[in-house]
Design a protein around this nucleic acid. Structure first.
Lengths: 282, 282
DNA sequence: CGGATCGATACCCGGGAGGTATCGCCGGCC
DNA sequence: GGCCGGCGATACCTCCCGGGTATCGATCCG
């Protein structure tokens, strides 16, 4: 199977419409039809169920869609990482580290400082990204290593080292009834009088249904809390970055948050290895 | 990048010789040269350093070799899993479970029994394989799920659920001086009088250097122990399968062995999901 | 210095990727 | 019910590129 065929198939499987898929691919519809037929013939499998009014995935097609996405990510990653390795001169190929904007601030600073002091350090590019974006970057090669937060981020398919585990705290606008409490139970948080929890943007760009304001990053969230329009449960380490007018109450029975450093399993380049070693010794 | 180009590059990078690589690929040498040049031009990277007498990898070439292998595995897996999903009729696509021959016997039996009793069970093909082979099978799509033993098998890049943790025991021929002992320390094992530990075959087909017989599977090993030519440290669960003339002594300070069920992160098909669910409930 | 080895280059051929035109099927609509 | 419009498949053409053979040029070796 050639990657072109996989790209074609993914386009059709996502659009469920040959015409639109062809347009998206920048080719005409007939070559696309032919390519898919040939793919089906070579695989000995029916991938799409077509009536002349609609297109649907078969069981085998659904399998190929999942697998093809993973394979295309891997190919794309190969291309990107090679390009990067080439353009930085031999030996000094930099490393791209992805991290959530507005989280893990002082840990990141300590890591970068400590690593820069290592004898064999290579340049590190830091990529600040939105919620849930790191997984994607790591998979398609735009990043080489990432700081993730379990259980929020999926680490599935990556090698990880745990760096730190911490509890969570409830962040409230000043003057809220709960703001004087020494601690709050998780159950109480879900029924906060008048203060809805925010809805984070999912990795597909949509928001889950329900009440609460739609939120894309920490800055937005903190502003909303300051305005008395929301409350949120965040890892303890967010505390130093909070503006003074917000109040913090520990939530002892909220799930623990573990910060991990993650990298694709096969890519133990010198830069990644050094960064991971430094991080675990922090 | 097309998979053909990746295959070509991997062949040359492994052989470090255009002629042999071309032969291995079943094409002539000139098209191969051209294909590699074009790949380099498109990537804007020098992948190979050629003198007319020898070929060597550049930094970027080494990166591409690692990444290309992973990408080709993913493409191959996509192809194989799709073929399998297609040939079993819709909905009842079977699952291939890889496990080490001669290990995890009764756990496997219990798992298969329990899963077969589930209402939505699909057929399970069991693939008995050699040491370290499961990782490969899982990566290139010949298997969908595997039973692995940490820390012996690498689980890097897979999703896992832990099933059982157990200690290890020393297996000796009857009549050996240590055979009467209630337990042995790990340090003592490495200096067993006259009984070398076996050398397992690595995943590349070679054996590590050192004394001790070369061993490929458990049957061979047990026979050698019976002949008084070797001793071995094995997980406790191997005990019921041992022939009567062998003696077993616990090694309390040997590393614990964890049996895990592992699967590729993106492939949570119905069959795999069910199998994993059953396994964790065992 | 001549031969052997090996990658690059030159040149040719055929298949396949891509395009346009058109067909056949089907659902909806007046 | 018949006509139209949307959509995927088919037919047919073109041209690029993957693959082949012949040969060159460099380098190492005897």
């Amino acid at each position: 199977m050639e990657t072109r065929e996989l790209r074609y198939f993914v386009a059709v499987a996502e659009e469920l419409h040959f015409g639109r898929a062809a347009e998206r691919l920048g080719i005409a519809q007939p070559p696309l039809s032919r390519a898919i037929s040939r793919l089906e013939r070579r695989l000995g499998a029916t991938l799409l169920r077509r009536t002349s009014r609609s297109v649907g995935l078969t069981e085998a097609g659904a399998v190929l869609l999942r697998e093809a996405r993973a394979a295309l990510d891997a190919v794309e990653a190969a291309e990107r990482r090679t390009r990067r390795a080439a353009q930085a001169g031999d030996g000094t190929a930099g490393v791209v580290l992805a991290t959530k904007a507005g989280a893990a601030g002082e840990l990141l600073a300590k890591l970068l400082d400590a690593y820069a002091a290592e004898p064999d350090a290579v340049p590190v590019d830091v990529l600040l990204c939105g919620i849930g974006e790191q997984e994607r970057l790591l998979r398609d090669g735009r990043a080489d290593v990432a700081l993730l937060h379990r259980p929020f981020d999926s680490v599935s398919g990556f090698d990880v080292e745990e760096l730190r585990t911490e509890g969570q705290v409830l962040v409230l606008p000043g003057g809220h009834p709960l703001s004087g409490r020494a601690s709050v139970r998780a159950a109480e948080v879900s029924e906060l009088s008048g203060l809805p929890l925010p809805r984070w943007r999912g990795r597909d760009g949509t928001y889950p249904a329900g009440p609460g304001p739609e939120v894309r990053d920490h800055a937005q969230l903190l502003q909303l809390i300051g305005l008395g329009r929301a409350a949120a449960v965040l890892p303890e380490s967010a505390r130093p970055h909070l503006p003074g007018e917000l109040v913090v109450v520990p939530v002892p029975d909220a799930p623990m948050v573990t910060t991990v450093i993650a990298w694709p399993p096969h890519s133990r380049s010198r830069g990644v290895a050094g960064l991971v070693r430094t991080a675990t010794r922090l």
